[in-house]
Amino acid sequence: MSEHTSATEPVLSVRGLRKVFGTQVAVDDMNFDLLPGRSLAIVGESGSGKTTVARMIVGLEKPTAGTIVACGRDRSKPARRGAERKLRGREVQIVFQDPYSSLDPRQSGADLIDEVLRVHHDHHASDRKRIVGELAEIVGLDQRQINAMPKALSGGQRQRVAIARALATDPHVLILDESVAALDVSIQAQVLNVLADIRDERGISYVLISHDLAVVRQLTEEAIVMQRGIVVEQGVTADILDDPQHAYTQMLRASVPGPGWKPQRMRERKAAADAAAEAAAS
């Protein structure tokens, strides 16, 4: 990836990150730095290891090797104490793909955010109420929706609640793992606009995991392309999308259906990409 000459410390820094499941290498030697307010895309085909990277960063999966540093503090090992766990929670947050299982069915959005705030801070009840209201407004939920049980909300509305939950503790990094993929196109656009606005207002950094290259171009400055756990291309998003160097990235870009899209050509490119990967592996 491009070396940053800026004096700013990265909010997230990953070195030699590796994860092995049994005999399968899900992630192999990943390195990147994410600067405050900047955003990074991770793209790659299904099973290439994107979610595994995200889960390691938020501590849901233990890295086999490598280091993860967020906000200057190491998080490569599981947190031992509750205070450390909460501190990490205030540094990096995540929004998952599935809006249906990502909310406790017995808790309204307002109660959920209230609980998160109670766990993290000593706010007065009225302050928490005010923050719940502010977050609802930021993600575009009205009074009724933020107080409704998840059952009474649509997928897009649930995803907004999940975003509000992630923002409740004002994290420095927000990981979006296919967070809008399950929503239909018009709702996707709305939620993406919400995310873009939040970034402008809060200076938060995103790690955006997506199949949608248009979204990647819109929201990120840098990108990583993964294939079978290996980083095959890394750099400025626009460069990678406009002038892909690696055969696999070319294939990925070509696989976005557009004018002149030909299945035949895609298959050829896929074959070429696979051959290149084989050659690289041996």
């Binding site: 947050q93 998952f96 939950r165």
Partner: peptide
């Protein structure tokens, strides 16, 4: 949702 709350600490 359990994973999300674990990430919250």
């Amino acid at each position: 949702y359990i994973a999300a709350l674990e990430v919250q600490g």
